[in-house]
Amino acid sequence: MTFWTYRRRDNLVGYLFVAPALLGSLAFVLIPLGLVAWYSLNEWNVLGGTFEFIGGENYKQLLADEKLRESLVATAWFAAGLVVLNLSLALLLAVLLNQKLRGTTLFRTLFFSPVLVSLVAWTLVWQLMLQPDGSVNGLLSVLGVDGPNWLRGESTAMVSVIVVQVIKNVGLNMVLFLAALQGVPAPLYEAAKIDGAGAWRRFRSITIPLISPTILLTSIITIVGSLQVFAQIAVLTQGGPGTSTTVLIYYLYQQAFQFHHFGYGATISVLLFVIVAALTLVQWRMRRKWVLHEA
């Protein structure tokens, strides 16, 4: 018996294989995260160069912060609107493209193309198009609609940010759904047809359950992603009008980088991390209830 049994060697290979990722996580994720947690217990005046331990003061401020509450409400609206619109539009497009129709490849290309346009370019273009005399309202006026001043109304600003983000990224989810739809065995539909099930019934009872793993994956990625939308807000609305589009990540940026409250910014970072982790955990736990293969 040698010391290097197959199992031992296998273990070693396993550790070696995960080592780069693990060391990277340690250096670039966990230690920085620990440092952020440490900063949140301090008052850090960047300009003056002072760094002072203040214990839970920042967390007390967090509880009393009225703007933070407004920001959480905006975040909730943004995330909910984004996820619902993104997933339903992605599913709709996937179903349409899954029809036996010539030219679906062309449409697939077109729907996917915004994914490839760089984010900053995309946002700049929309910023110009959404001005009151911009081309969005130009197109609407052709239809006889008098368009609003999109980025300066409280609800229209939120709608604009959501729509711009959804159109940019819905192509990814669409492709994932399309692949899932093509994986649904055709005989299932045939059988259901013979049993007299209508199109909607077939969609609900066959399609949805069978593609539920994909719905889970896309909804996790989309929700987590929605809490990280920063550049779009920075370019389009700067959090306004009022504080209507100041989502949490933007508020964090304001506090830390614009108002120079690095310690408090770190505290909001910790809160954001907790929220993202909790949401992901809940979704993961709930998957047994509604995802077909996990039951």
């Binding site: 009022g242 504080t243 120079h260």
Partner: peptide, 14 residues
């Protein structure tokens, strides 16, 4: 604290 004032006033004047 100008930047915080800036943003607060900007939002309140909207």
């Amino acid at each position: 604290g100008q930047e915080e004032l800036n943003q607060t006033i900007r939002a309140a004047l909207d």
